[in-house]
């Protein structure tokens, strides 16, 4: 495993830890999109179907379990925890997220490496992950007040896929890996969606001001 891949996984893990910290310590999910969190549950559930059938490494299995358990528990907290759920910005989190699921599934049926159930679902998870952040970005734009934990959560989440891009370049050059257009293009789209957010995040960080996205 190369340094970019490890750094990518660690920022991904860090983003989830930041979100859980917010939920546990502040008992708040203000500014967090339940729609995006539900999409991540679907992403991990469809991608990690191989968890019981294919063994890669201890690291791989543990990380998959961590991502599955944490994504399910975040959704559970936002929906059912008696304090946390009252902080959810229901009225502003109105992105119709199922409208992302259907086109991603159709695209996975059309463009995939091999037409099998597992391969189509794996491809679907990549397409869906690429756009899963959209409800969250829309909610951020509507929020007058973005707290630090929420801003950092989205930043680490974007950094994760950005680092994966370097990982793929490295693997292609150093390990002579094959062309893998489906994850590469999905990952590129996913990272590009954060460009605007990154711009304002870094700007506010430099000026030591509170993060605010223009409406």
């Amino acid at each position: 495993m190369n340094v970019f891949r490890l750094a990518g996984d660690m920022t991904h893990l860090l983003s989830i830890m930041v979100l859980l910290l917010k939920i546990h310590s502040m008992k708040s999910c203000a500014g967090i999109s339940l729609k995006t969190q539900e999409l991540y549950v679907l992403v991990f559930a469809t991608r990690y179907l191989d968890i019981f059938t294919t063994y890669f490494s201890f690291y791989n299995t543990v990380m998959k379990i961590v991502f599955l358990v944490t994504s399910f528990s975040i959704v559970w907290y936002m929906r059912h925890h008696k304090v946390v759920r009252q902080t959810y910005d229901r009225d502003q989190d109105t992105f119709r997220h199922h409208l992302l699921v259907i086109p991603c599934f159709l695209l996975a049926l059309l463009i995939n490496h091999r037409f099998t159930v597992r391969e189509v679902l794996w491809t679907f998870s990549l397409y869906l992950e690429a756009v899963a952040i959209l409800p969250q970005l829309v909610l951020l734009q509507r929020s007058r007040n973005i707290d630090n934990l929420t801003g950092n959560y989205v930043f680490f989440l974007g950094a994760y896929r950005g680092l994966y891009l370097f990982n793929w370049i490295y693997r292609y050059m150093a390990e002579k890996s094959q062309l893998r257009w489906i994850p590469w293009i999905s990952g590129l789209v996913q990272t590009a969606l954060y460009a605007d957010f990154f711009y304002y995040y870094i700007k506010s960080w430099k000026k030591r001001e509170k993060l605010q996205l223009p409406a």
Binding site: R5, D9, H12, D50, T54, F56, S57, N60, M63, K64, F67, H113, R114, E119, W122, Y164, N167, S177, Q178, R180, P183
Partner: peptide
């Protein structure tokens, strides 16, 4: 197998 080999990523 190519499709398996690429799935060691998360």
């Amino acid at each position: 197998d190519h499709s398996i080999a690429s799935k060691d990523e998360l």
